[in-house]
Design a protein around this nucleic acid. Structure first.
Lengths: 354, 354
DNA sequence: GTTAGCACTCTTTTCCCCTGAGTGCTAAGC
DNA sequence: GCTTAGCACTCAGGGGAAAAGAGTGCTAAC
């Protein structure tokens, strides 16, 4: 059986209506649409065809039709109308970003929250570094009685610091020697190169302050290997409960629990391939738990070797056009924001307190 | 009517059973308990009394009884058996804390997650500073071409840093002058004291690097006033969905949405008064949305002028004995951990990346 | 003071019937 | 050869009655 234009038109109508109503769509409802100048019988024939072609499903014999996964797929790839964001929408997204993004603290969490608000669905957000960083500069400065502060600059312009309490007293010049040695030996190295032999070597040349070296190297190596890890946040989980398909809490719980575990574990891999917006419809998700759930994600560059990803999770019957449009706009705005030099406040970090 | 020992015993049994089964408790069920050597008729009489006294409620005429808020209150305050944590429980809490708390990143989130796991309920966690901090030391160090790093030490031993790109070039000695001026003028001040006049004064004496001063003062003032704010996290929201009283997603959504908003807004006030474990039963919560929900919280000191709070949210029918026991143990372990100097890794901060 | 007995109340479950939405098919119409 | 009207058929969902079950309240006896 071949796919005619009219079949596509019918399929699109079915998906559109189902997205709006969450109820199986009957032939009559289709005929009542504008631009549908056929009788219900004709539509019924077309729908029967679409059923055998696998684009529609029938919950039971005498019910309307709902899109199958394949139907959604076709809809997403070819059929859905471009959703143009209204002025209001772009404005509210823009102001939200501007208001919330002033402080650089916990950016991924904030982004996730904003995306969730903008789509009224659970959202994930992630930032990850593309390549591994190395240390570019060390500085050890005195910090009052019995303490020094270690400052490490990384190749990606992050700045880390650590307060070290001294078991012994060292002089300012000891620290200068130490800083010089660190800068000479440890810059440009990957975490794997922080071997015990290297530690020995550095300690030998570090003079009086040698006892600080193990702490410093541990800290640096750990920080560097952590770079590779992603920074993931999930927000707005409870919005899933607003969707009629999750009126049953058990069902929602399964999805949300999975989301919690997996967002953190599996997402980094997703970043690897391909840019742009991606839609995973129901069963295309690998895990069984997300069989009735779709994921829409956008990946984008945010400069400085960082990649961002934002995405939302919702029922297969979600408004793909709206969601993808908002998500793309969001991604675009974020990229722009990070590209603007006056907003780029990158390493204005702040310690987590203990 | 007076409260006899037997009445208390019956009340305790009703609450215990209701916590276990989530079903109204009938007189027959009570008689089947060990140590209950009375007939169902006797129990019925006692239950009728407890009903008129307001400790029990009756969903409808021919149903069993469920505890009222007052009933829970009495149960929590007087009746419930001490729950002794098993070796397994203490061990799993301890190892969880040890494993997860190694990195100081995002501590509140991690704690919330752990508490939620330990209790199988949504959890909140918070860390807040008791008094306002001040800056104790400034250091401006060169960081390669056209950049300097500002390091600020706070009175609470946090260390903040910020990378500043220079619009102009300054020499090392300029920076030393600047550091000296900053240390002389800005240490020990509360954020309110960062006035425009002070800014002017500092700039006048800062020499070549004067153009850096506004950025530095803004950053410091903001960091200091942020100190006062609390650091709140919520985790495991979806665990609420496992509770039978929230099988209806709508209900769960109301509570969870409230939790999301309010945990961040209202909790800091809670920290103000009284230490120890506290139970808020259903209607004792101020907000209407939490009427059928109980909150158990523990506040504790974690040294360094910091206070911690952990808590869980669940149905009024929750296992108070178990939850309070686990929560207290958690609080205790955390305090201990933070008190141990070798684990105290306080300002080993790490920047959030953009 | 305690308990057995029993009538009574109310929810929950089950069953049945009916209604309505929607289909599939056939035969007629353009 | 499409398209459409017509009609029999199917099935989910709602309403209501009846039956089942759990538990109470009360009375009278122990």
């Amino acid at each position: 059986m071949e796919m005619t234009e009219r079949k596509k038109k019918v399929l699109r109508s079915v998906v559109d209506l189902y997205i709006r109503t969450a109820e199986p769509v009957g032939s009559k409802a289709i005929t009542e649409l504008p631009d549908m100048n056929y009788s219900s019988a004709t539509i019924r024939n077309e729908m029967a065809d679409l059923l055998t072609m696998g684009y529609l499903e029938q919950p039971h014999t005498s019910a309307g039709r709902i899109p199958s996964a394949a139907g959604y797929r076709l809809y997403v790839d070819e059929l859905m109308a471009d959703y143009r964001l209204s002025m209001d929408e772009t404005k509210s997204i823009n102001t939200a970003i501007e208001e919330k993004m002033q402080q650089v603290d916990r950016l991924v969490e904030k982004v996730a929250k904003l995306v969730s608000q903008a789509t009224d669905l659970p959202a994930i957000s992630m930032a990850a570094r593309r390549g591994g960083a190395t240390a570019t500069r060390f500085e050890v400065i005195p910090a009052g009685a019995g303490s020094v502060i270690l400052v490490v600059m990384l190749s990606d312009e992050q700045v880390l610091n650590k307060l070290i309490k001294l078991p012994l007293s060292v002089t300012q010049s000891d620290l200068q020697v130490l800083s010089a040695v660190l800068n000479a030996t440890l810059t440009g190295l990957s975490p794997e190169e922080f071997t015990p032999e290297l530690l020995q070597k550095v300690m030998n040349s570090a003079g009086e302050a040698a006892s600080l070296v193990p702490v410093i190297m541990d800290f640096t190596a750990e920080a560097l290997s952590k770079q590779a890890n992603a920074n993931v946040a999930v927000a707005g989980q409870m919005r899933l409960l607003g969707q009629p398909e999750y009126r049953d809490a058990k069902k929602a719980q399964r999805v949300l629990t999975k989301l919690d575990e997996d967002a953190l574990a599996n997402l980094p891999a997703v970043l690897e391939n391909g840019n742009g917006t991606k839609v995973l419809v129901g069963p295309e998700n690998i895990t069984q738990e997300l069989k009735d759930t779709s994921v829409v994600m956008t990946k984008f560059d945010i400069g400085d070797g960082m990649q961002g990803l934002i995405g939302v999770v919702g029922p297969t019957r979600m408004d793909y056009a709206k969601v993808t449009a908002r998500l793309s706009y969001f991604a675009e705005s974020l990229s722009k924001m990070f590209a603007k030099p006056e907003q780029k406040q990158l390493p204005g970090g702040k310690d987590e307190e203990a």
